[in-house]
Amino acid sequence: MSDHGTTTRSTPSARERRPQGGNVVTRFFSAIALYFSQVLDEMRKVVRPTRKELTTYTIVVIAFVTAVMLFTLGVDAVTTRLVSWIFSGTW
Rank of each mutant, 00 (worst) to 15 (best):
K45P: 05
V68Y: 00
G5T: 02
V24P: 04
G5K: 01
H4Q: 11
T72L: 14
L70H: 05
D41K: 11
R9P: 01
Y57A: 13
R48C: 04
N23C: 06
T80S: 05
V78D: 03
A77F: 08
K52S: 14
P12R: 06
V65C: 03
T26D: 10
T55R: 13
Y57V: 05
I86P: 06
A63G: 01
F29H: 10
T90W: 12
S13M: 07
G22P: 01
R51A: 14
I62F: 15
Q38D: 02
K45R: 15
R48A: 09
T8I: 15
P19W: 02
V61P: 00
F28N: 05
L82S: 03
V25C: 12
V60R: 15
L54Y: 06
R15C: 05
G89K: 02
I32N: 10
T66S: 03
F29S: 05
V25Q: 12
I86H: 12
I59F: 11
T72A: 12
T66F: 02
K52G: 08
T11P: 03
S88G: 02
M1A: 09
T72G: 10
G5V: 00
H4M: 09
T7F: 06
F29V: 08
T58H: 09
S30D: 15
V78Y: 06
V61E: 06
V60M: 09
A67V: 04
G22F: 03
V75S: 03
G89W: 00
R9L: 11
S84F: 05
G22C: 06
R17E: 06
A14L: 13
M1C: 11
R27N: 01
F36L: 13
V61A: 11
D41I: 09
T55E: 15
T56R: 05
E16I: 00
A67H: 14
S13N: 09
H4W: 08
G74L: 01
T8D: 15
A63Q: 07
T6G: 14
F87V: 07
Q38M: 10
N23H: 04
